[in-house]
Amino acid sequence: MDALPAGFEFRDYLDGPGLYLGSELLANACPANSDPGAPWRLCISPRRPPRYEFLADEAACRRYMARWACLWEAEIRERIGQSRPPFVNPVSGTGPETRHPRPRSRRHVRIE
């Protein structure tokens, strides 16, 4: 099996392995469905919208995650080291609990 960079480790996550850097989940894999011999779905998401790959089995997913971590180690560490919490829009700085103003009704607007 491919070696992981320092600080990265595999731990169990739901139905398959998860790749962690400290306490941050970077990627995880699980069977795509419950059929026997189903492909595995790999989800990579270091503070971005997730990206999915479909591979033959768990071992292939682990190899992919290890190679990915080695290749992108510096960028991953930079992204994870950012202080903003996940699920915050970097442009507006708002999170999912933000309330948006309701548009006013135009039903009673007089046009003269």
Rank of each mutant, 00 (worst) to 15 (best):
S23F: 10
Y13V: 04
G16N: 07
R77Y: 03
V109I: 15
G16P: 08
P36V: 15
P103M: 07
R84N: 07
R62N: 06
L21I: 03
W68H: 12
C30M: 02
P86D: 12
P50N: 04
A59N: 14
E24K: 08
E58W: 07
P101K: 06
F8Q: 03
R47K: 13
G16F: 00
P5Y: 05
Y52Q: 09
R102V: 15
E53V: 09
G37N: 09
L25A: 00
L25S: 04
R99Y: 12
I76M: 13
L21Y: 04
Q82D: 06
E73W: 01
F10K: 04
P103W: 06
E53S: 05
A38W: 07
S34K: 14
P90I: 12
C43K: 10
D12C: 02
N89P: 05
P17C: 02
F10R: 00
Q82F: 05
L14S: 10
C30S: 11
G95K: 06
H108I: 11
P101L: 11
S92R: 03
P90C: 10
P46F: 01
G95V: 07
A66H: 00
G95I: 00
L26Y: 03
V91M: 11
W40N: 03
E112L: 15
R48P: 04
V91R: 12
R51Y: 03
P85H: 15
G37C: 06
R79L: 13
D15W: 07
S45Q: 14
A69Q: 02
P17L: 05
R11P: 02
W72Q: 13
R11D: 05
A29F: 00
R11V: 04
P31H: 03
C30N: 06
P90G: 08
D2W: 06
I80Q: 01
A66D: 10
E9R: 12
P39E: 07
C70Y: 04
G37L: 04
P5V: 11
R51V: 02
F10L: 10
P85A: 15
A66L: 01
S83G: 13
C43G: 02
E58R: 08
G16C: 10
Y20L: 07
E97V: 15
R84S: 15
L71R: 15
E53L: 12
R104G: 14
G37T: 11
G22N: 00
G93N: 12
R48K: 14
D15V: 02
F87V: 03
P46H: 05
R77S: 10
P86S: 08
G81D: 15
G81Q: 13
D57G: 02
L4Q: 14
R106N: 12
M1N: 11
A29D: 08
L71I: 14
R11L: 08
